[in-house]
Design a protein around this nucleic acid. Structure first.
Lengths: 104, 104
DNA sequence: TCGCTAATACGACGACCATCGTACCAAAGT
DNA sequence: ACTTTGGTACGATGGTCGTCGTATTAGCGA
């Protein structure tokens, strides 16, 4: 199952980019959902009130910041959190973000 | 020593706003500096290569997100981190951010 | 082959952002 | 009162961001 292009390596993860990726409520909801259910999920399976193209945009921001991993599975893209990579590079950061109360 | 206006209360701190405030390299450097030296510091005492008005902008973003506290002391503004408030609202978040390698 | 599905590509739009320059203000020192 | 100091207010500018619509592509199934 092929990996999509432009995933930063673990060492290349940059804190400002990660924080910016997480600073959008929609993207934050995606990350929470991925953390709650560790099974890789399709882009369309997140109940966000935006169009498909906007969704594509948000997933790209998350991927290029190194927050998520995207793999090609037929016509779908399977998304998963890069928990280990984030933990190695920014210990405790993701857990702290996930621990805060869900966004309204 | 009077507090400046528009400090959000602890309960009103919002994660996206805090993450956005921390996602700028200049502001990140300010926060690191405030964490390293807990004595309240003047806005001008941070060695950032931006003009005064830009500096004012960054400090306002940090204050309105609830990351820092700004008090009026004569002509100066004394800045300090809202560590306890941030810790209560988003446990571990600030420590995780500060623990990561400094920005180049 | 002919759709159907899931997502991307591209272009557009308004909003916001970081930055700056200039003008201004308030406190402190002389 | 004048000057200096530390910072704010305001307006402008160029760039990025979130959003959308439309067109397009890749894979799957009938």
């Amino acid at each position: 199952m092929r990996r999509m292009k432009f995933h930063p390596t673990t060492e290349d993860l940059e804190l400002p980019a990660v924080l910016h990726a997480l600073s959008d409520p929609h993207r934050l909801r995606i990350v929470r959902a991925l953390a709650d259910e560790p099974t890789p999920r399709r882009c369309g399976s997140f109940d966000l009130d935006v169009t498909k193209s906007t969704l594509t945009h948000h997933f790209r921001v998350l991927r290029e910041a190194g927050v998520i991993d995207q793999r090609v599975d037929g016509t779908a893209r399977l998304n998963s959190l890069r928990r280990e990579d984030l933990e190695r590079r920014f210990p405790g950061l993701l857990d702290a973000v996930l621990a805060s109360a869900p966004v309204a």
